[in-house]
Simulated scan of single mutants.
Amino acid sequence: MLLIIIRTVILYAAIVIVMRVMGKREIGQLQPFELVVALMIADLAAIPMQNTGIPLLSGIIPIVILMAAQVTLSYISLKSEKARTVFCGRPSVLVANGKLVEKELRYLRYNINDLLEQLRSKDYPNIADVEFAILETNGQLSVIPKSQKRAVQPEDLKLETKYEGMPVTVVMDGKVVKENLKKINLNEDWLKTELNKFGINDFKKVFFASLDTAGKLFYQLKANSGGGSV
């Protein structure tokens, strides 16, 4: 039993490292060749994990080879348009200028019910509101609505808007994120002063705190003690 646990931990660590090297993508965002590699890696890891008679290297070496092949193909796809078309394919336009592209639907064996279901999931229950619908190479459907049906933007109303950047996390689970404070030219003394205004004298009481680009501090105390902003 101990041997199985050790082999499982080693293979798990190897797969985690391999998947990290291969890049950050969700399953739904994988290209076909990337999905094949992921499935093959899972199968290769399962065999030596279950059968202690098979050397660990018999599972790890093929996994590393697949990782190298995937990274190589990804690099080639990045540099070559032709290779990218061969490995990943091309996006397919299913709705163009408000009309269904029957030829493309038949070629992809993509029926209208599937298309309507995907449109509903994108909050477009009426196909008449859609200008373009594009099936991307990873299988996701991108929808471009007609100009009359798109959400109103501040630019449409000629409104001026302020810059909104990403809030910076300054406290996480009772610990000050010093690197983030340094990036925004602040320090722990400033943070302590700001929290003291709310009667908070110990960072350990703070579950989360962040500072937005307008200088407003948001915080939440541990154990559902409440939160607020400055």
Rank of each mutant, 00 (worst) to 15 (best):
K146V: 06
M1P: 06
S121P: 03
F218K: 10
M40L: 15
Q153H: 15
L30R: 05
Q70A: 15
S225K: 14
M22H: 06
I17Q: 01
G165A: 09
G165D: 03
G139T: 11
P91F: 03
L116Q: 13
R25P: 15
G174R: 06
D114F: 13
S58E: 12
I63P: 10
Q50E: 14
I61T: 02
G53T: 04
D114A: 10
I61H: 07
M22L: 09
M22K: 03
K82P: 14
G23Q: 01
I200D: 02
T161V: 14
I63V: 00
D156V: 01
A38T: 06
K204W: 06
P62S: 01
D202H: 03
V21F: 14
D114Y: 12
Q140L: 09
V143M: 08
Y163K: 07
E179V: 09
T72Y: 07
L44Y: 09
Y110H: 04
V170A: 08
A68V: 14
V18N: 10
Q31Y: 07
F203S: 03
R150C: 07
S147H: 12
G165F: 08
V18M: 13
E26A: 10
R84F: 07
K79C: 10
L57R: 08
R90K: 11
V176I: 07
L221N: 04
V86P: 15
I47R: 04
I61W: 11
D202T: 00
N224G: 07
P55S: 06
K222L: 06
E188Y: 03
V230R: 14
F198A: 09
R120A: 01
G228P: 04
L105V: 02
A38G: 03
I127E: 00
D212P: 02
K175M: 10
P154Q: 04
N138M: 01
S121K: 09
V71W: 15
V152Q: 05
V21N: 12
E160G: 12
L157T: 01
K99N: 13
K158G: 08
N187P: 13
G174P: 12
K103C: 02
V36T: 08
I61Q: 01
M67F: 12
